[in-house]
């Protein structure tokens, strides 16, 4: 059983996940370096699938490389680049290598990336992909062809708690849960009230669905403005932007704000941990985790 599943399903411990940096050049050395940096703090880390519609080392090969270097992967699969056959192949291929944590999501559109002229696939959507994973874990492909023995998947999904239609987001999360999602990594949310309403609503109906809100570590006020302007589905309220840019030390203010958001998120019903996206790649991660009262795991 994966560490992630064991902790979420059989303990009440908090779980911390992160995003593995995209690998392009640099070979296995860059994997080793990043794995060493993340391993002390995180239970499992997402092997991303061409994030923001940019080509990088593939989800499966990144997940395998992470596993080789003692970092438990959560393999992401997005619906943008592969049809239902290829997505099932990704999942069963992951299983071959002992990778069982999955995170299934729609994915940014091709126009978000550097090859907007590419064909978008979206043969299945995220809820359908989740259902396919669930079906495979019962021992058949979508077609009904048997898989014996059935792969062991721990199925995750993603939801944006704070994008329109606001009233519907809870139902959508529950739909993914019905399809087979056992945990949800939530997109970054700068509206604590919306996150709170979402988590309460989900926890009331589906207390066994584990919620893991995202927190982003960024360098300063410009990063916040970038999130607001460029990242689809992310809105940063004007007073938050003003608080960051108007401070005497904007970088410190953004850090304080991030810590407040993290502590608030952890206090919400249904929330079992945090997903940390680190755009700083410096010692701030250690500081942040320390401030949350975490102690690093000893390696080796």
């Amino acid at each position: 059983m994966s560490i992630l599943r064991e902790k979420l399903e059989n303990t009440s411990e908090r779980v911390f996940t992160a995003e593995f940096p995209s690998i392009d050049g640099g070979g296995m050395d860059s994997v080793i370096k990043n794995a060493a940096r993340l391993a002390p703090w995180f239970d499992a880390v997402n092997a991303t699938d061409n994030p923001a519609a940019h080509a990088h080392t593939s989800n499966t090969t990144t997940a395998i490389a992470m596993k080789m270097h003692d970092l438990e992967p959560i393999m992401q699969i997005v619906c943008r680049d592969k049809n239902r056959i290829a997505i099932q192949a990704d999942m069963i291929g992951a299983s071959l290598h002992g990778i069982t944590n999955l995170s299934l999501l729609t994915g940014d559109d091709v126009t978000a990336g550097d090859e907007p002229e590419a064909r978008r696939v979206f043969d299945v959507d995220s809820a359908q992909a989740i259902n396919m994973a669930r079906i495979m874990a019962t021992g058949t492909y979508l077609s009904g062809r048997k898989i014996n023995p059935a792969p062991d998947f721990y199925i995750g999904a993603v939801e944006n708690a704070a994008a329109p239609p606001f009233d519907y987001r809870i139902q959508r999360a529950l739909k993914k849960h019905r399809a087979g999602a056992q945990f949800l990594q939530l997109q970054i949310c700068y509206h604590p009230d919306r996150l709170e309403a979402f988590c309460k609503g989900v926890a009331e109906v589906a207390p066994d669905l584990k919620l893991i809100p995202t927190i982003v570590l960024m360098k300063g006020a410009k990063g916040l403005a970038f999130m607001n302007d460029k990242v689809p589905g992310i809105d940063v309220p004007a007073d938050v932007l003003a608080r960051a840019s108007g401070a005497s030390d904007p970088a410190q203010e953004v850090y304080n704000l991030t810590l407040e958001l993290a502590q608030h998120a952890l206090s919400l019903p249904g929330v079992r941990g945090l997903h940390v996206t680190d755009f700083r790649h410096d010692e701030t991660l250690d500081l942040f985790m320390n401030d949350l009262g975490r102690t690093p795991k000893r390696q080796g």
């Binding site: 619906c79 729609t106 944006n160 239609p165």
Partner: peptide, 15 residues
Amino acid sequence: PKTLRNGPCGGVREN
């Protein structure tokens, strides 16, 4: 544009 059959993606704008 993503031909989604099961609800909105996470990229819906604030408006």
